[in-house]
Design a protein around this nucleic acid. Structure first.
Lengths: 120, 120
DNA sequence: TATGATACTGACAAAAAAGTAAGTATGGAA
DNA sequence: TTCCATACTTACTTTTTTGTCAGTATCATA
């Protein structure tokens, strides 16, 4: 979570995300959980925190919150808070989030088609 | 490099790459360097190890080799060895590698379009 | 006989990402 | 008055990825 601003690692990442659209896109959707979150929101339109968590098999509270927060900060998802107890918070894609649809669909197809060819 | 086969981390990754095309695709092109390597090979057709390295600003020998090896193992690049001294080794995309073109192009466009909207 | 060019290797260290476990706040229902 | 459900927090540990640095092999050429 804490990034060392001038580690070589960080310098390299910044260089590439600033100079390459693909690297930038990857920085936004990369990692273990973000694409799964985006996919579920793409299908289900709007989901409560707890509903999303149920779908994300294996995820921990910490990852849930931290990835949702990153996605929100990046403007890909909206966080809708209902003032009630117990709390109810829903998540949905923003327009920007929706604009990733083509990429996600293509990636899904490619994966489905080639999973069997590549044995990792 | 060494993965603990039954860490939760690894279990989660396996679960998602096996059950989700997108996650699988991400496992193949994710990380700091792979997409850059693929992009350069997509543009330049065929490149020597040293030529590729020059383009990959900031990369170390270790990362070069290890990422090239992974890409080769996954069947995305061909490694062409010329029997001569000093050594000459060229890398090019396979057909499978080329089939990622649409995804990479879309990702590039999306990144270029949205880089300014998202300030990280 | 030493040097140079190229494509690597390997042991180790730092950084980043992911996971664990135990909390907190709220107000209505039992 | 204690308990419950939900959406988080927080401090800490483990795992994974990335980077550093100093090698190695080959043979033609100087």
């Amino acid at each position: 979570m804490e990034r060392k601003a001038n580690s070589t690692n960080s310098i390299n990442e910044v260089y590439w995300t600033e100079n390459c659209g693909i690297a930038f896109t990857l920085s936004v959707i990369g990692g273990r959980w973000k694409i799964s979150i985006l996919s579920f929101l793409l299908n289900d339109k709007k989901l409560r925190y707890s509903e999303l968590k149920k779908r994300l098999v294996g995820i921990s509270e910490r990852m849930m919150i931290s990835k949702l927060k990153e996605l929100e900060l990046d403007g890909l998802v909206n966080r809708i808070v209902h003032q009630q107890v117990p709390p109810k918070v829903e998540y949905e894609l923003t327009e920007l989030g929706h604009s990733l649809k083509d990429i996600l669909v293509l990636m899904d197809k490619w994966g489905e088609n080639n999973m069997m060819k590549i044995e990792e």
